[in-house]
């Protein structure tokens, strides 16, 4: 078997709520192979969002480690974190989180700017990605002029921009109707079939049912981890 693209080892996170410690994550360990399309499900407070923040370097664990593409990201310093974020990780958020003042094209472009990609290549890649997302004729529209589904597709294109090792999607269908939801899930599935690793956090069973592997979390621990054939 190949080296897993994501390796999580004994990951724990304890918050202090006043003087009471809250164990948001306790000794979570698992591997994800390249091209996998998996979902993490669980009720609110089960630790799935905390977990996503750890992998995405948005938060630091209390103990344990995360390796992405062989690099231990949990050891990254404040100055290394941005580099890892833009090279290894693509984010898709529930609220799309597009920059309202920028057009669809510019929203995809900006992710590559931070990665210091030259201008000519950025434009070409952004057009290519938006075309893949079926947004070729919507490229110059601002987020406010796009539907929820279109916005989320722009966000996915943005996440793909720097060819990340893994795409982390936090409730990507939380704000769209069922038809759009199905379309977005299909899109992600299609990307994974082309070799893109995608990790979706959701509590929508219809979404997780379309993924190939479901990790269920409860009280900060993995309750089950099963493959769907």
């Amino acid at each position: 078997m190949n080296e897993p693209i994501l390796r999580v080892r004994d990951l724990s996170k304890t918050y202090m709520q006043g003087k009471i410690p809250v164990h948001a994550l306790s000794d979570v360990s698992f591997d994800v192979q390249k091209g996998e399309f998996l979902s993490i499900v669980g009720p609110s407070g089960s630790g799935k969002s905390t977990f996503l923040s750890m992998i995405g370097l948005l938060d630091k664990p209390t103990s344990g480690s995360v390796f992405i593409d062989g690099v231990e990201v949990t050891k990254a310093t404040d100055s290394e974190a941005p580099v890892i974020r833009r090279k290894k990780i693509g984010f898709v958020f529930q609220h799309f989180n597009l920059i309202p003042t920028l057009s669809a094209l510019e929203n995809v472009d900006i992710a590559m700017r931070f990665a210091r990609v030259p201008k000519s290549r950025r434009r070409e890649r952004a057009i290519d990605l938006l075309t893949q997302m079926g947004l070729r004729d919507r490229m110059n529209h601002k987020p406010s002029e796009l539907s929820g589904g279109e916005q989320q597709r722009v966000a996915i294109a943005r996440a793909m921009a720097n060819n990340p090792a893994i795409i982390l999607a936090d409730e990507p269908t939380g704000e769209v109707d069922t038809k759009t939801r199905d379309m977005i899930v299909e899109l992600l599935r299609g990307l994974s079939e082309k070799g893109q690793t995608i990790l979706v956090v959701t509590h929508d069973i219809a979404v997780s049912a379309k993924t190939r592997r479901i990790i269920t979390m409860r009280d900060g621990m993995i309750e089950s981890d099963r493959m769907i054939s």
């Binding site: 941005p82 974020r85 984010f91 958020f93 931070f114 990665a115």
Partner: peptide, 8 residues
């Protein structure tokens, strides 16, 4: 968001 996208 920009920081999550890798802005320094």
């Amino acid at each position: 968001l920009m920081k999550a996208l890798g802005a320094e």
